[in-house]
Design a protein around this nucleic acid. Structure first.
Length: 597
DNA sequence: CCACCACCTG
DNA sequence: CAGGTGGTGG
């Protein structure tokens, strides 16, 4: 969509390239045709959206770990092979409407849990020593889990504003939106010079893209706090219930008091990274699928790989939700781990490993998929190879997404819900597990430079949002603002320079000034903000750059540059053309990965 | 007064 | 890129 725009723009006027860009026409044309065939790589949609399930996965794992322990114990001690009835099959969908769910959960799960040990007849059958109590405990536990599952499933759908007209729009201020709109139109009217056929395409393309971006930015986020509360409660309740069950079982079954660890230890270690100590793998393997929880969408074998291998983290991707949108990635990204109270202080190292895994899929569809265009038009720095390298560095281990995965995506409606709630949770989470730095490091600078491709005038709030691992204070904020000020300075200087050059070369029509990827101007800018060319410069930046160039040209060609403050109007225009920054930039881990050092 | 900006300088 | 300065707007 947006990609072709640049090429479209320039095609008709050979001269346009002569001064701005190096060699051009022929190549450009061909690249243009190529582009038509391919999809836009920009903002969203390209990436499989949703691996938020991973958070659930962790959760499941937790439960399963506990369950496995209980089962193992029971199995080992009681030798009663009665398979547990599969409970509710689908117990996923963490809901976002905490209220009701929470209410019901409290009313039901608590009483049940604390209730008498009335034995279910069905569970009393079979010979066993010390059996009944144990079974009862398990049964109760199961029931509780089922209740929870049921309630979660029943919980009224959260505001799924996506469809609702009354959905929660406006993540950005209305003002901002307005500005965008007005600018968009002005941009188009300007470009809609009848004489310039191709520019219409640009206009349309930009409209489309902007709409896209806008849409993206307005995606709903709902009650983060609510969802978080719900999750917290669920977590506590479940862990408590399980712990109690385990406790009881142990007390009743185990004769040797030394035989059982403290409840805390037992119930938590299963999830701790590197947490080994799972009783008997064989036992677990044999029965893990018999509990209802095992029927949950993602049956994961906790100890199998989570802690160490990390390779196992690719597992969750099998789920229907594996497709992940950058947005989701970034969110999810901060969530599951840092949010995980049960993992007692996982090492940052391991955490980062895991996060890297998850993240690995984000950037791929987004930035690294280098368009054919690049290979043809960018001769000097072989972007393709560098980008591929970047892809590899980002996702060494995980399996790449395959079309097969995509097929599954649309399936579950619950998926979206789950995503949302998890997103909400993620959003509300502090970066507890990610060391927040005092000052700014080179990585931050690098990231800021790349962000400049999207925003020339970031607000301090935006910066705070996109540098979550930075401890902002007046000084840091000023410094970062200063960075962008310097970026702009360079940017405008280049624009003025090239505009002046165009004038000196006799260019009369500003529309002929288009910044392309093989333009000298682009090369200079890219060198400045994206040294090493590790990043695929978004097309929106090319559009902005072209526009800036044209504005400078217009002003100068009319002699406005004699006015001391002739640039101000241009600044004003450009300041309104900031694009939304991909959510992926919000991830501090992303920055760690990509911008380290 | 503060935050932010552009400009200039090193 | 950081410091310093002056201007601007809330």
């Amino acid at each position: 969509m947006d990609l072709p725009t640049a090429s479209v723009l320039l095609s008709p006027q050979p001269q346009a390239c002569s001064h701005l860009a190096e060699p051009c026409m022929e190549r450009e044309r061909s690249s243009f045709t190529q582009e038509l065939g391919r999809d836009s790589t920009f903002p969203r949609g390209q990436l499989p959206s949703s691996s938020l399930t991973d958070a659930d996965w962790f959760w499941d794992e937790h439960i399963q770990a506990k369950r496995a322990r209980v089962e193992t114990i029971v199995r080992g001690m009681c030798l009663s092979p009665s398979p547990l009835a599969p409970g509710s099959t689908r117990a996923r969908d963490s809901s976002c409407c905490p209220e009701k769910a929470r209410e019901r959960k409290r009313k039901q799960s608590l009483p049940v849990q604390q209730g008498s040990l009335k034995a279910d007849p069905a569970w009393d059958q079979g010979p066993r020593k010390g059996g009944p109590p144990v079974k009862e405990q398990l049964h109760l536990l199961k029931q509780q889990l089922r209740h929870l599952q049921a309630h979660i499933l029943q919980a009224p759908e959260p505001s799924t504003p996506i469809q609702g007209p009354g959905g929660s729009e406006q993540r950005k201020g209305p003002l901002r939106a307005k500005q965008r709109n007005s600018l968009r139109s002005s941009l188009c009217t300007m470009d809609n010079d009848p004489q310039q056929g191709p520019n219409k395409d640009l206009c349309e393309a930009m409209k489309t893209r902007m709409a896209e971006v806008k849409h993206q930015s307005e995606e709903p986020m709902f009650c983060p706090s609510g969802a978080q509360v719900l999750l917290e409660i669920l977590r506590k309740e479940l862990s408590r219930a399980v712990s109690q069950a385990v406790d009881s079982v142990l007390q009743q079954v185990l004769l040797d008091p030394l035989g059982h660890l403290t409840q805390q230890d037992r119930s938590f270690q299963g999830l701790a990274p590197g947490g080994r100590s799972q009783p008997s793998p064989s036992g677990r393997g044999a029965y893990k699928d018999t509990l209802d929880l095992a029927t949950l969408p993602r049956t994961v074998q906790p100890q199998a790989g989570f802690p160490l291998g990390n390779l196992s983290l690719t597992r969750p991707l099998d789920s229907p939700m594996c497709p992940i949108s950058p947005r989701e990635v970034s969110k999810l990204y901060q969530s599951p781990l840092s949010n995980y109270p049960l993992t007692t202080v996982p090492s940052h190292i391991q955490e980062n490993k895991i996060l890297r895994q998850l993240l690995g899929h984000g950037p791929k569809g987004h930035w690294s998929v280098s368009p054919p265009q690049d290979s043809s038009s960018q001769s000097h720095s072989s972007p393709k190879s560098t980008q591929q390298h970047w892809v590899l560095s980002q996702q060494q281990l995980p399996l790449p997404f395959t079309p097969a995965h995509e097929e599954n995506r649309p399936l579950l409606p619950s998926v979206k819900m789950e995503q949302d709630s998890l997103q909400a949770v993620a959003d509300s989470l502090p970066f507890s597990s990610i060391h927040i730095q005092e000052g700014l490091n080179p990585g931050h600078l690098k990231k800021a430079k790349l962000m400049f491709f999207f925003t020339r005038y970031p607000s301090s709030n935006l910066l705070k949002a996109y540098f979550p691992d930075v401890q902002f204070n007046r000084c840091i904020t000023s410094q970062m603002i200063k960075w962008f000020s310097n970026f702009r300075e360079f940017y405008y200087i280049q624009m003025e320079k090239y505009a002046r050059q165009a004038i000196s070369e006799g260019v009369t029509n500003p529309k002929m000034l288009v910044v392309l990827r093989d333009s000298e101007l682009f090369r200079v800018l890219n060198m400045h903000y994206n040294k090493g060319n590790e990043f695929k410069v978004p097309d929106c930046f090319l559009e902005i750059a072209s526009l800036t160039l044209q504005e400078f040209f217009r002003a100068m060609s009319v002699g406005k540059d004699s006015d001391p403050s002739w640039k101000k109007p241009i600044y004003k225009i450009i300041s309104k053309l900031d694009n939304d920054i991909p959510e992926i930039f919000k991830s501090s881990n992303y920055s760690l990965e990509l911008f380290r050092s």
